[in-house]
């Protein structure tokens, strides 16, 4: 069974995000880059399936030079090879362009299942997996929390409000991974060392024969407004505090 996992390098959830003065993007200085956590569920699930059924796991990522670290992280977890789509023209690419690049790369290699994270934690778009399935012309199940693969079929469980859907699909298919699918493994040290020597193909847009013309464009990025500090209402007695609170709500907050 040959499995492809699409991964994206994103800023660590705890990183301090500063928007560039011109609003064109974020300031990347001092940011710790990690693998998108939802993609990690995809990598883990792919490795589990491989361990059960044999085959290869290929990691595909669109991103600048630094994205190679993330591919290596997935290789350290146990994937066999990587494809790094690195083209300056793809920087800040929209979901459609990213999905086309991934699709072009995946079409060239055998794939029984393609995993994506349900969304990336940086732009929260959640579109790439679905567009990719359309471009590859294969079925998709999104936001999957449990997966079983047998007899050329995939049975996926997806949580919806108050219930669970069990969806069966033929292979090949695209699965987008949600939290709960598994607990991603910690890479072993021999895994980390071996990953350094595993093959990673670097491709650009021209090699993939794709158009880099974006269908959507980020016009401006703005930091959220700074939150004013909270206030502790003073006073000795409860009644006094209440009076103080009413006064503040009326005069300062002007909500009553």
């Amino acid at each position: 069974m040959n499995i492809v996992v699409c991964v994206k390098q994103v800023p660590d959830t705890e990183a301090l995000i500063k928007v560039k003065a011109d609003g064109s993007g974020i300031d990347e200085g001092g940011i710790k880059w990690v693998m998108n956590p939802y993609d990690e569920f995809g990598v883990e699930e792919a490795l589990k399936l491989k361990e059960k059924n044999g085959g290869d796991v290929t990691i595909v990522s669109v991103g600048p030079a630094r994205a190679l670290e993330t591919i290596r992280t997935a290789l350290a977890m146990g994937a066999e090879k990587g494809i790094h789509i690195n083209d300056p023209a793809l920087e800040g690419a929209d979901a459609y362009t990213t999905a086309s690049a991934l699709a072009a790369a995946i079409k060239e290699i055998p794939h029984d299942i393609v995993f994506c994270g349900m969304r990336a934690i940086d732009d929260d778009a959640g579109q790439v997996g679905s567009i990719l399935a359309e471009l590859l012309g294969i079925p998709q199940v999104t936001v999957v929390t449990k997966l079983e693969v047998a007899d050329g079929k995939a049975t996926a469980v997806k949580a919806i409000e108050g219930a669970q859907l069990v969806i069966e699909t033929s292979l090949p298919c695209v699965i987008t991974a949600a939290k709960g699918l598994n607990e991603p493994r910690y890479a072993s040290l021999p895994g980390i060392m071996k990953a350094k020597k595993k093959p990673v193909d670097v491709k650009d847009a021209a090699a993939l024969g794709i158009s880099v013309a974006a269908k959507a464009k980020i016009v401006k990025m703005m930091p959220p407004p700074e939150r004013a500090p909270g206030k502790i209402v003073g006073g000795e007695e409860a009644a006094e505090k209440a009076a103080q609170l009413v006064k503040l709500l009326r005069e300062e907050a002007k909500v009553i």
Binding site: D12, E14, A15, L16, V34
Partner: peptide, 11 residues
């Protein structure tokens, strides 16, 4: 990722 066990932003 953040050089501390709690994972609070290194900055």
């Amino acid at each position: 990722n953040n050089s501390n066990p709690w994972g609070i932003g290194a900055h």
